[in-house]
Write a protein that binds this DNA or RNA. Structure first.
Lengths: 322, 322
DNA sequence: GTGAAAGCGCTAACAG
DNA sequence: CTGTTAGCGCTTTCAC
């Protein structure tokens, strides 16, 4: 391993000078700079990130905490976030929490002890008090942590209402909602949207709860339809759940979209692979990822933010399930 | 931030003693140990991983390099690997390479400069020479890097032949192979398996090439069937490609499994969500992940390995596409 | 403009 | 058994 000392020796300057050109700050004569640069080239030197972090008490990495790496929405989001951050010389550390408190606690310890510079978090369990111990900039995606933590979400409430209105416009009059888990921010918002729009349209409200996964959604749908055969439209809590709904419908021999229309939420690629292809409210994942990286880097650099909450609109994408 | 010095002061011992109890090595009297432990509790102290790494030139983290986080096979593998490694007090750093040389080069730099203790790699581009610079233990999954790098794979060749034999046993006599990308280890192996088994069965060979993604597979299938309407069975390069095949078939109005039987490879959950559900050769992902973690940790601890190559059997899972 | 030197928090001789 | 001390590789005052 070649160190800054080796470079200094080869360039016949002090380590301080090498450090200056490395960090591009302070005065360095053109001549010295050139010698140092040549030495760096020749020795194929890369600064040691660990030593740097130790001194600065801050590393060039940021933590990205997601609840479930198996939900393809998060890998997509990760790609977007990582792309932006890598371009800005940061490494992103992915942590899968399953939104369990003990995992989260470990992750927080890791981040603190690794001098992570900032964090992007998707979680319903992480509260302000967890963050306090970290004392690094944080932004929340897809969920809101608190007033004081900047967050980026889609307009779950409004876009859910739009989904319902679209179903109504397609002739549905008995619209059920297979909702996401209680206590999960966006699941609650989407549920509120459903409820309020259904009320405004003076339609019957039919809600059943699942998790953000395929299996519970499938089971819930079976149960729901057993009790309410009159249903002619379903708004699923997210795309994965919508896939579960469509599977249940297939098992029951119910034709989509003729006898039943189904709409999801998120816009993951998966939705285009099932038959029929899923109509959904598509989130601007790329945009959210990029913006969150940008926001976080601003925070890290000590810039103050103009706004604390950014919201995006999910876009109706009509495919074959409606 | 509380340091080892604070603990030493609180416990009225030297930092060396604190370090000894922290690392549980060397002689420490029961009395001192107790004092130190109490102080650690009271001050809520966690050792600084960065400082430790700097001194030891080795961190408690291992790098996991995958080609495509969007292929759900890899998140599943990640979960398995991470589970094992977390239980053994390691952090796993996930790197998405898209198997591009420039990304890989950056990742290698990161790993070196972060003192990563070892790496688990899935890549066709990474060769021994890249690894030489790293000089840390490495194991390969799903691909073989070189004779000298321990690897864990399924019996792609043998299991591919089994897939073909199964299709034959179901009455197929014109079996095509929508193969994975050229130069990708497991795609080549699966292709060889197809070719040899088809030859042995004295059936016509029909191969078309795609990438390990949905879209190219769909297009390739369309093309293939346009030229060879006599095909009655398709072996896809992996499950994602099989999903593409089934989509193409749906577009063409070809009934699965009546007019055409389809089998995939990998066993990702996705395969159970499409209609019809996908028959596939299922890899023991959990097992491979665990074993690779175990192997790597042994290597890191300096144990010599008895064998350098581990292979697993994929298992035929019959569902509705055959 | 440049270098010497003090540390970031930790571990591992080494001496007692 | 325990404490002192010298670094790990880097950045940053502070003199010159």
């Amino acid at each position: 391993m070649t160190t800054i000392r080796d470079v200094a020796k080869a360039a016949q300057v002090s380590v301080a000078t090498v450090s200056r050109v490395l960090n591009n700050q302070g005065y360095v004569s053109a001549h010295s700079r050139e010698k140092v640069e040549r030495a760096i080239q020749e020795l194929n030197y890369t600064p040691n990130a660990v030593a740097r972090s130790l001194y600065k008490k801050k590393s060039k990495s940021i933590g990205f905490i997601i609840p479930d790496i198996s939900n393809p929405f998060f890998p997509q989001l990760f790609r977007a976030v990582e792309k932006y951050l890598i371009d800005h010389e940061y490494t992103v550390l992915l942590f899968n929490s399953d939104d369990q408190l003990d995992r989260i606690s470990n992750i927080m310890d890791s981040m603190r002890t690794e001098y992570v510079a900032g964090a992007i978090i998707v979680s319903d369990k992480i509260k302000e008090e967890h963050l306090a111990k970290l004392s690094i900039p944080v932004v929340a995606i897809d969920r809101v942590i608190s007033e004081h933590v900047p967050s980026l979400t889609v307009n779950n409430y409004k876009n859910a209402r739009e989904a319902i209105r679209y179903l109504v416009s397609q002739g549905c009059s008995n619209i059920a909602h297979v909702r996401g888990p209680k206590g999960v921010y966006n699941a609650e918002e989407r549920f509120r949207g459903y409820r309020d729009e259904i009320a405004e349209q003076q339609l019957p409200s039919l809600v059943i709860c699942g998790n953000y996964d395929l299996k519970t959604s499938l089971v819930a749908t079976m149960e729901l339809l057993d009790q309410h055969p009159e249903i002619d439209g379903i708004f699923a809590g997210n795309d994965i759940m919508a896939v579960g709904v469509i599977k249940a419908l297939a098992k029951l021999g119910i034709q989509v979209p003729d006898q039943m229309k189904v709409i999801g939420f998120d816009g993951i690629e998966w939705g285009t692979t099932i038959t029929p292809e899923l109509t959904t409210m598509e989130q601007p994942i790329e945009q959210i990822g990029t913006k969150s990286g940008e926001l976080l880097l601003n925070l890290i650099d000590g810039h103050v933010m103009d706004s604390h909450h950014y919201s995006f609109d999910a876009k109706l994408v009509v495919r074959d399930s409606t």
